[in-house]
Amino acid sequence: MSIFNGKDGFAKAKNEYIEENSLKDLDDDILKSIKDMAVAEKLTGAYSTFTSNDTKALFHELLMIKQQNWIKIRQNQEMINQLRKLNSK
């Protein structure tokens, strides 16, 4: 995502997002998608304050599902890496 006259004003946020979620060793195409998600999350203010307990509960449930997805993505990447090693022999 290139904004601000060709300069990406979200580069730091993208890298922090990847670091926070332990997603550094993924394939480039997957990282690109994750960086786009990081920007979308930043722009939507996903961590705003909520007044309703129901809304808070839903937000935390979605956060938990997102974290589970990051675990699955990392596990899938490890399997892909292992298969690549086997195929290169």
Rank of each mutant, 00 (worst) to 15 (best):
L63R: 00
K14E: 01
E16R: 10
G45M: 07
S52E: 02
I71E: 05
T55K: 15
K14M: 07
V39L: 07
K85Y: 07
L23N: 09
K7E: 10
K7T: 08
A13Q: 00
K85I: 15
Q68I: 01
S48P: 09
S88T: 09
I65V: 15
K56C: 08
M37L: 06
M79R: 15
N69K: 09
I3T: 12
A11E: 15
Q77G: 01
K7D: 15
N15T: 10
N76I: 08
K14I: 03
R84P: 05
D28K: 08
I80A: 00
L26C: 11
Q75K: 11
W70G: 04
I30V: 14
A40V: 04
D27L: 07
G6N: 05
G45C: 14
N81M: 02
M1E: 02
K42C: 02
T44K: 00
K56S: 10
W70V: 06
N87T: 05
S33A: 07
M1P: 02
A57Y: 12
K89P: 14
S48M: 13
L58F: 07
D28T: 08
S52Q: 02
D29I: 12
W70P: 02
N76C: 14
A13F: 02
A46R: 07
K89E: 15
S48Q: 10
D29A: 13
L83E: 11
S48K: 10
K14P: 05
N5I: 11
K85V: 14
G9F: 06
I3K: 06
G9H: 07
K66G: 03
K89S: 15
Y47E: 06
K72R: 12
Q68V: 08
D36N: 08
Y47D: 04
T55I: 12
T51F: 04
Q68E: 05
K24Y: 13
T44G: 03
A46L: 04
L58R: 04
R74Q: 01
Y17Q: 11
G6Y: 07
L26P: 11
D36E: 10
M37T: 05
L83D: 06
I73Y: 00
A40M: 05
I18K: 14
S88Q: 13
S33K: 09
T44E: 09
M64W: 10
L58S: 02
D25N: 11
N76M: 13
K72V: 12
I34M: 12
G9K: 00
D27T: 04
K66Q: 08
K35M: 11
K56Q: 09
L86M: 12
D8Q: 10
E61V: 14
M79Q: 15
Q82P: 07
S52W: 06
S2F: 15
S52L: 01
L58E: 02
N69Y: 07
Q82F: 05
N53V: 15
Q68P: 00
R84M: 01
L62Y: 15
M64P: 03
Q75Y: 11
N21Q: 06
A46W: 09
